[in-house]
C-alpha cells in the first residue's frame, strides 16, 4: 500500500520541554482576554438590540414570500412550478379559478391555498428562480420563529404580509392582454 511519509520537524531540547511554548500560548490567550476586557476587541453582536441587517447583502436569502404588484394584483397564478422544484417539498399549493366578477378575472387562476412550511424550507431560492410570474421572492427576514409546528407554516396571508408590494416587475397581464 502506498503511503506518504510525513516529515516531522526536529525539535530542539528547548522546544521539547514544551513549557516555554505553553507559556507563550498562555500569554497570547491572556493578551486576547485583556484586550477584550478593556473593550478593544469584540466579535460578538448583542443580538436583539444590535443587528446586522444593514450590512446584509442584496443577494441574502431569507424567508420566501409572495408579492403583489403596483396594481395590487397578487402575482402568483398557482402554476405550481415552485412546488415542483422545491427540494425539501416545503411548498403546498391548491389552485383555484378567479371568479368572473373579479377585476383580474382574465388571469383566470390564483392560489386558493399557498403554504410554505418554514421548518422544511432550506432557503435555496429555487422557487424564486423558477417562478415565471415574478411572484415569489426571498426576503431578508431570517428570524422566523414559532411555538408550534403550525406556527411555522406560512399561509398565503402571512406570505403576502412578508412580501408586500414589489414595483418595477415585468407586467405581462396588462391591458393589452
Amino acid at each position: 500500500m502506498a503511503y506518504i511519509k510525513i516529515k516531522r520537524p526536529r525539535l530542539g531540547l528547548f522546544e521539547k520541554l514544551y513549557l516555554p511554548a505553553l507559556i507563550k500560548g498562555l500569554r497570547i490567550t491572556l493578551g486576547h482576554a485583556i484586550s477584550t476586557l478593556r473593550g478593544k476587541k469584540r466579535e460578538t453582536m448583542q443580538y436583539p438590540e444590535e443587528k446586522w441587517d444593514d450590512n446584509m447583502p442584496e443577494h441574502y436569502r431569507g424567508a420566501p414570500a409572495l408579492v403583489t404588484d403596483e396594481q395590487g394584483r397578487e402575482r402568483c397564478v398557482a402554476c405550481q412550478l415552485c412546488e415542483f422544484i422545491c427540494p425539501p417539498r416545503a411548498i403546498t399549493i391548491l389552485p383555484e379559478e378567479i371568479p368572473t366578477e373579479d377585476k383580474w378575472a382574465k388571469v383566470e387562476k390564483r392560489p386558493r391555498k399557498f403554504e410554505i412550511d418554514m421548518i422544511r424550507c432550506i432557503y435555496c431560492g429555487l422557487c424564486e428562480e423558477v417562478c415565471p410570474e415574478q411572484a415569489i421572492f426571498l426576503r431578508k427576514d431570517y428570524a422566523i420563529t414559532g411555538l408550534t409546528r403550525e406556527d411555522m407554516v406560512h399561509d398565503k396571508e402571512k406570505l403576502y404580509e412578508i412580501g408586500g408590494v414589489r414595483t418595477g416587475l415585468v407586467n405581462k397581464w396588462n391591458e393589452l392582454k
Partner: peptide, 11 residues
C-alpha cells in the same frame, strides 16, 4: 400563441 403556460392546464 399567448404566454399562458403558467395558468394553462395543458402545461
Amino acid at each position: 400563441h399567448p404566454l399562458d403556460c403558467p395558468i394553462c392546464d395543458q402545461a
